[in-house]
């Protein structure tokens, strides 16, 4: 398990499925049954057309590196320095994450590089979706 992190999230009724999926190693998104818009973060209606009929879909886990910073200030639970990144999923939505299994340097972290999801256990109930460089 990763280092203790004080800021563990507490799921809401609307996000519970996402966190349950993460525990099983699945990255879950939602898709509108009407306009087919795929979105994140979770909510029980389509943010594009307000339709309440939406489905949970499993993302491929493939993404590209959209933007990031490398934080140099000490932060409990993190090795220093560490990336704080936004990735763009193959399905369209973007999400915040950390890029792992990779040197935390500008040379190694190249925008638009292909990534794949990997789950990191933070507690018995919470796994975080992190991303690592895709195998060549």
């Amino acid at each position: 398990m990763a280092k203790p992190n004080k800021s563990l999230p507490r799921p809401t009724p609307e996000s519970q499925h996402f966190w349950d999926g993460a525990l099983k190693g699945e990255l879950l998104l939602q898709q509108c049954d009407d306009c087919q818009h795929t979105y994140f973060p979770p909510r029980p209606f389509c943010p594009k057309c307000a339709n309440r009929s939406v489905s949970i879909i499993k993302a491929s886990g493939k993404a590209t590196l959209y933007s990031y910073v490398i934080n140099h200030r000490p932060l409990p639970g993190f090795d220093n320095p560490h990336s704080i990144a936004v990735v763009e999923l193959e399905e369209g939505p973007r999400m915040m994450t950390n890029i792992v299994d990779c040197p935390q340097t500008p040379e190694a972290l190249v925008l638009d590089m292909p990534l794949t999801v990997t789950f990191e256990a933070m507690s018995e109930d919470i796994k975080l979706a992190k991303f690592k460089p895709a195998e060549a």
């Binding site: 992190n5 563990l8 973060p41 933007s67 910073v69 934080n71 704080i84 915040m96």
Partner: peptide
């Protein structure tokens, strides 16, 4: 839920994320 767990806890390492 969706930002803080990744260390996005302070403006210097959040507000700056879009710049690269």
């Amino acid at each position: 839920q969706f930002e803080t767990p990744f260390g996005a806890v302070a403006p210097p390492s959040m507000f700056t994320i879009p710049v690269l």
